[in-house]
Design a protein around this nucleic acid. Structure first.
Lengths: 336, 336
DNA sequence: GTGAAAGCGCTAACAC
DNA sequence: GTGTTAGCGCTTTCAC
């Protein structure tokens, strides 16, 4: 707990009667160490409870074997899955991640990004919620391997999904079922994902010559409980609404609670469609109709792209991977 | 994106026509730099887009200004609040946090802890789920300032809450309302929090000469959707149960969905008590009766304790702070 | 197969 | 008020 500084390679070199280079070699799995000396060194490490100093190693290596991961809401199961996917790849490649949660705040996004740059992470994977004001992102992506998920900053590796189509399909499904008054619950930010799903919602109306009622589009800033508020707002003010399209499953889940608590039935009184197909979707009763995104794959793809970029270190053309979405029809929607 | 290494203090010293120590001084807000030279240096920093190298600084300082934060389920809003509290203190003290999510896995807990030790974080705040098998924690807490939240590893600063009393109060409340068949939904781990709340549940029964039916105690390993399963299990197998005490609000919320989806009414058919008083508690309909813990304060207290320990660096006696809990009676419980 | 020594980018005495 | 220099703990040529 205190002053006693931990042992360094010098200590273990001394104990094992070898030079520090040899000690370093056994750590780096260099083959050019005899079995005997390797054993001696390993014993010394054991006895002294040596813990390698990743900082010193990073300085010498000019590489931290760490990547930065910036997400906008850790309490959304969607991110938990993506992170899972990312870590599955990082683990096998010897990287570890440092995770930051911006809670949809631009200020935090900036702060964390700056910290990561100073900490010399080897790369960054970011879910940014901002599309227009991103000068700080531009500078970052020019300095360091950078993968953006579900944003479009141009000139950088990015993983996207067919969000506009996903949203379009969801709303078309509701229209096919005869719904005309379809509410849309979403966050109030200037992000590509949000604007794409918004476009999908609008286009599905256009294609079907259905007027868009702006009142039915409920946008609020992120807060832990905002889904409840949005749903109650809709229920209180627009009883003619027969279907809600929620920007994500998390919001859809909040809708369930607000709706069912009033004794209303899903889908009898009101149909719900979510987005993401997180684990909750099929746990809800009735099971949630939602737009599937290959969440875990988003993570693995992002991590693979980033690692490739880190290793190659050349300015190859940025890749854009667009993953498919798929409407999963379950039990929360019905025809009217 | 590539080979061009970023500028170092040497580059900016050259550009500003000063020595590297002067450059270092302006960074460390040392007063002993004349306004003029400070300005020169700041200009050079600006022009060269210099980004300080936190790694080199850490090595020289023997301090990373970073603390490690290990939690067991980032998607639980409880942790989001604690983290908020922690960051509020860290921010003012110039520390930043690196966050890891163990998803209640001992293996991950070990791995992340080891990584943090190697990365030479200045201290660690951990929510460990393990009580008995914790040799790896013991070694960690002897090397580095260490604060444990809601666990008891002995001989280390820890923040607790009156969990046994909290659970006791919750169950006593249900018993007062006339409930006799009270189910308890909890995670299946060997942690202090779990065992304390368990004791509270048992003791409340004992005190009231109410038999404990072991079948009503539903323990499962953590999974994203486990609360739904637990509730459905109870509903399917024990129709005589009139009240459920959930280990936390997150599980309680899952219960709401499972119960209300069956057309059952809370609290008419079944009463629910949660634990934590997260933001969701008062958003649910009916509003959730739950045990309040000062969540945010848990975070601030932990961070303050840790920072104190880091700064003082002396082996003062470990502090144990036990925070109060309070039953908040809302609308999800009623008498039978 | 092993050691000596330079260097990664910074901080902090210590001089002046 | 500013510069010189010796580390921090490691990796990595380059000798031997």
């Amino acid at each position: 707990m205190d002053a006693k500084l931990g042992p360094t390679i010098y200590d273990i070199a001394e104990k094992a009667n070898v030079s520090i280079s040899t000690v370093s070699r056994v750590f780096n799995k260099s083959t050019s160490v005899s079995k005997k000396t390797r054993k001696k060194v390993e014993n010394a490490i054991e006895e002294l409870n040596y813990i390698p100093n990743a900082i010193a190693r990073s300085l010498a290596n000019k590489s931290s074997n760490t990547i930065g991961l910036i997400v906008s809401d850790i309490s959304n199961p969607y991110f938990a899955s993506v992170i899972d996917g990312i870590e599955s790849i990082l683990g096998t490649e010897g990287y570890s991640a440092i995770l930051c949660d911006t809670r949809y705040s631009l200020e935090r996004e900036k702060k964390y990004l700056a910290q990561m740059l100073e900490k010399r992470v080897d790369g960054i994977i970011i879910f940014s919620v901002y599309q227009s004001d991103y000068s700080f992102i531009k500078t970052a992506k020019n300095i360091i391997p950078f993968v953006s998920i579900q944003s479009d900053f141009g000139e950088t590796d990015t993983i996207n999904t067919h969000d506009e189509k996903g949203a379009y399909d969801a709303v078309q499904h509701l229209i096919d079922l005869g719904h005309k008054n379809i509410a849309f619950m979403l966050y109030d930010y200037d992000s590509m994902t949000i604007s794409n799903r918004f476009k999908g919602y609008i286009n599905a109306h256009r294609t079907n010559d259905l007027p868009v009622n702006k009142n039915y589009i409920v946008k609020m800033k992120f807060q832990p409980n905002v889904g409840f508020d949005m749903t109650n707002y809709i229920l209180d003010n627009f009883p003619e609404v027969t279907a809600i399209f929620a920007y994500n499953d998390k919001l859809a889940m909040s809708s369930y609670i607000a709706i069912q608590a009033r004794g209303l039935k899903i889908p009898d009184t009101i149909s719900i469609v979510g987005y993401d197909d997180t684990e909750i979707a099929s746990c809800l009763t009735p099971k949630l109709t939602t737009v599937e995104q290959p969440i875990y794959d988003i993570g693995t793809n992002a991590a693979e792209l980033l690692i490739k970029r880190i290793k190659e270190r050349e300015n190859t053309i940025p890749k854009l991977i667009t993953l498919p979405t798929k409407l999963i029809i379950r039990e929360s929607t019905r025809s009217v």
